[in-house]
Design a protein around this nucleic acid. Structure first.
Length: 806
RNA sequence: GCCGGCGUGAUGGAAUUGGCAGACGUGACGGACUCAAAAUCCGUUGGGCUCAUCACCCGUGUGGGUUCGAGUCCCACCGCCGGCACCA
């Protein structure tokens, strides 16, 4: 009797409710079971709701989490809301609604959308970064950082977004414009909260050797940290009791240093004002450089400019020669010592500069062309020349020898530098965690008492940022005025708030024990659940969230809060979902696809499947509504198989090999995130079943189990309709048997000189030797060879026979 | 400029890592069912030559190479995408 039609709109809400009622996916507190912690980047609940890009990574790890449960693991798989942030604040300003209310509404919308997709989150552990019970601990971590000297305030030039009216981290400035809004970013000197991530540069680098991150992520983090090895060298100033320290990665080329360059902001310029003949010209150049935005500075990076400092000269420590000193904006005050020795023969930038200003070029590494015509920066092949005691050495050996020499003479030493900068950690906006620091006229900066946390965000009347660069909460005088925890005198609260990255830097710890009021999470919960076993997220977070959270975690490890040095054992990344036209989805392009509409048409199960089937998981793929409908057609076929069920609990003879192959392929491919080929394999199997016209109970059950992580609702429904027993999510993951992975007889290709000429059925057990002896004797093969001579015979078991003939 | 990645039918993409290129899906075409349509089912679908679904030839961005055999490895080039970008 034909079954009732497949109606996702009826069965999906039914099973979502069932799972919810039965707490089907709640992580167990039984810490004796093997655990698996899968993590997805919790979303920022924007007003626009989900688009079809969000569910791709969510579905992927939902598949992994569901599979792990069936494999017997205690799985922690959660969702939360990274809800502080500018878009919400801007929306609140525009519509005169409290950001907390906007946030609440957005979260409700997001949650409803996600629930419709049937993700197996443990909703009882949901976290929200704007909840005082949560940000209490964000503030607590900040206080620990402060107490350990890793949070500090300093005057420094910062990136200022002219539209957001807010400071940005270096990582948030892309091509000289604000990553978020695209407005120009200018430099402003401001007293800023900073986190000393540079203190962890080496640990962040070393930690990468012990985790399983995809290579792209490791490489990007390594480049961003930017470690380089070299030496610092002192150059005495002729006739003065003063020296300039430079950093170089090429101390071996010291004999080729023909001039020096200081960054325009170098403090020595003021210090030696009285000895400098053209101080005015230098100040003019400095002012011009300061006016350039990062963007302009980058754009003109090929065109060298600079001014020679008149009146002072430096002495090269290796040979006592006097060399001129210049200032130029190609030397950055923020890297190394803000000063360089210039070796034009072996550095491209120095070469360009020397050519432009007609400075001498001296070759000290032989092996290139004429250095007057072309720079020779190669370090692998050259031999030292014109360098006295270094002559004849390789570059690598010369580096060692000169470094020892510098140390011995007391004019320098080996030095490691990093490109990584400290993290600008304050925003002059309302909707963020207040920084729990009190400014006391007598005691200076005093941390709040931990027992007074959380420091709640005050209610303000206006959220608008101010043009003077102060946070809107600075206007709340009642809130700002307070007593110093140390001396009890009148004091003021810090009014900057934390950046959005704060709350997301530790949320995965909170999932372990989200309702704890005594600690950010209990030691037992952290010891059991951490580290995260598998974290999937966007490439765009590689040098932001992913690096920041590793830093916080390493710090928490150092102070004994967590017992694993790295937070994430494995990191993978998904490709973007593009619009149907192949362009990035955006409201302005009008190509945004809303998952609600797709689910309404084809159901959540088909939607989830298409998200995984559309292409390679790590690649960007255009959305195709027709493609998604194809997945619905497949599920219809699976549904209709109910009409062809036979009673047997076993696999039938003609499907046995296909069944075992499918179990293996799906099992392996899910682990490798090759969801598209796993699904293709299931489609192939179902095609065989349809073709055959019958399917045993045993076969059908296995298919449903394999399919259930991808499309869980339909599998549960069929399972129940057919009376297969306890729900699918409580069942065991199927196992395959090696001995059924291959058929007894396989078809091989017969090639002549590498070209396929025919096919042959051979037993799988046929050995190489037997094949080479017997197969050419077969009539069908003889016919192909004709009267040609066999020169060579190659047999690849189970694949092909290649005859080289003449 | 430097560092990664990629380039396969009309289309999204497969290809056990050197072994039958184009799995699976979409689209298209033909057929069955139907009064008709939708749905479903069956077939065809890289190109050339061809009455032919025989045979033959060509074919994974371009040109060369290694190999019995190359989408896969090597060299050179072209194109696209991502990251970094005066970091001494």
């Amino acid at each position: 009797m034909p079954v009732q039609p497949y109606v996702p709109a009826e069965i999906e809400p039914k099973w979502q409710k069932y799972w919810d009622d039965h707490q089907a996916f709640a992580a167990s507190e039984d810490h004796t079971k093997p655990k698996f912690y899968s993590l997805i980047e919790f979303p920022y609940p924007s007003g626009h709701g989900l688009h079809v890009g969000h569910p791709r990574p969510y579905t992927a790890l939902d598949i992994v989490a569901r599979k792990r449960r069936m494999e017997g693991y205690n799985v922690l798989h959660c969702i939360g809301w990274d809800a502080f942030g500018l878009p919400t604040e801007n929306y609140a300003i525009k519509n005169h609604i409290h950001p907390a209310k906007v946030t609440q509404e957005n979260i409700a919308h997001f949650r409803a959308q996600l629930q419709k997709l049937g993700f197996s989150f443990d909703y009882s552990r949901e976290v929200n970064t704007t909840d005082p019970g949560y940000y209490k601990w964000t503030q607590w971590i900040f206080l620990q950082l402060f107490k350990h000297g890793l949070a500090y305030k300093t005057e420094m030039p910062i990136n200022w977004c002219t539209s957001c009216k807010c400071v940005l981290a270096n990582e948030e400035v892309v091509d000289g414009v604000c990553e978020r809004c695209g407005s120009p970013v200018i430099r402003k000197v401001k007293n800023q909260w900073m986190l000393k991530i540079t203190a962890y540069a080496q640990k962040l680098l070393d930690g990468l050797d012990h985790v399983d991150f995809i290579d792209r992520v490791k490489t990007q983090q390594r480049n961003w940290i930017g470690r380089s090895e070299g030496a610092e060298v002192d150059f005495r100033l002729a006739g003065l009791d003063e020296k300039i320290r430079v950093y170089t990665t090429r101390p071996d080329t010291l004999f080729g240093a023909t001039y020096m360059v200081l960054s325009p902001e170098h403090p020595l310029i003021e210090k030696l004002k009285d000895h400098i003949a053209n101080y005015g010209a230098l100040m003019e150049y400095r002012a011009a450089a300061a006016r350039k935005s990062d963007f302009e500075r980058t754009e003109m990076n090929k065109d060298k400019t600079g001014v020679e400092i008149a009146g002072i000269r430096a002495v090269n420590p290796v040979n006592g020669k006097e060399i001129p000193i210049w200032i130029s904006d190609y030397v950055l005050m923020t890297y190394g010592t803000g000063a360089i020795m210039a070796v034009p023969a072996h550095d491209e930038r120095d070469w360009d500069f020397a050519k432009k200003f007609n400075l001498p070029i001296i070759e000290v590494v032989a092996g290139g062309k004429n250095v007057q015509e072309e720079c020779f920066p190669d370090v692998a092949t050259g031999v030292m020349v014109n360098s006295e005691f270094l002559n004849g050495l390789s570059v690598a050996d010369a580096k060692q020898k000169i470094a020892d020499w510098l140390t011995e003479k007391g004019v320098g030493e080996r030095k490691v530098n990093y490109k990584l900068r400290d993290w600008v950690f304050a925003r002059q906006r309302y909707w963020g965690e207040p920084i729990p620091i009190i400014h006391c006229p007598k005691c200076g900066m005093v941390p709040m008492d931990e027992k007074d946390l959380p420091l709640l965000l005050p209610d303000v009347e206006h959220y608008e940022p101010t043009d003077d660069g102060e946070s809107p909460i600075a206007r709340m005088t009642d809130w700002v005025s307070c007593k110093c925890p140390q001396c009890g005198g009148d004091a003021r609260r810090e009014t900057d708030t934390m950046p959005q990255w704060a709350g997301s830097s530790w949320y995965f710890l909170r999932y372990c024990d989200p309702h704890n009021n005594q600690a950010l999470a209990s030691k037992e919960a952290l010891d059991y659940w951490m580290p995260v076993d598998w974290y999937n997220g966007g490439m765009e977070h590689t040098t932001l969230h992913l690096l920041y959270s590793r830093f916080w975690h390493q710090f928490l490890y150092d102070i004994g809060v967590v017992d694993c040095p790295e937070p994430y054992m494995k990191r993978t990344s998904h490709g973007m979902v593009l619009g149907e036209n192949g362009e990035k989805m955006s409201k302005s392009r009008g190509n945004v696809v809303n998952p609600d509409e797709v689910v309404a048409e084809i159901g959540a199960d088909a939607f989830r499947m298409y998200e995984m089937f559309m292409g390679a998981f790590d690649q960007a793929i255009p959305w195709s509504t027709n493609g998604a409908r194809g997945c619905r057609k497949f599920l219809d076929r699976v549904w209709r198989l109910q009409d062809c069920l036979t009673d047997s609990e076993d696999f039938s003879d003609d499907l046995r090999v296909s069944m075992h192959q499918t179990i293996k392929k799906v099992t392996d491919d899910f682990e490798k995130m090759k969801f598209n080929t796993a699904i293709a394999q299931m489609m192939t199997l179902v095609n065989e079943m349809v073709q055959k016209g019958s399917v045993t109970k045993g076969e059908y059950k296995t298919l449903l189990l394999l399919l259930s992580p991808v499309s869980p609702h339909i599998c549960e429904e069929i399972w129940q309709l057919q009376g297969f027993g306890e729900p699918v999510y409580t069942q065991k993951w199927p196992a395959y048997d090696e001995k059924f992975l291959v058929r007894d007889e396989v078809e091989i290709a017969v090639q002549l000189n590498g070209k396929v000429k025919g096919k042959l059925m051979v037993p799988i057990t046929l050995t190489k030797e037997a094949a080479q002896a017997e197969l050419p004797q077969l009539d069908s093969v003889k016919a192909l060879i004709g009267d040609k001579q066999i020169v060579k015979c190659i047999y690849v078991p189970g694949r092909l026979l290649n005859l080289v003939v003449k």
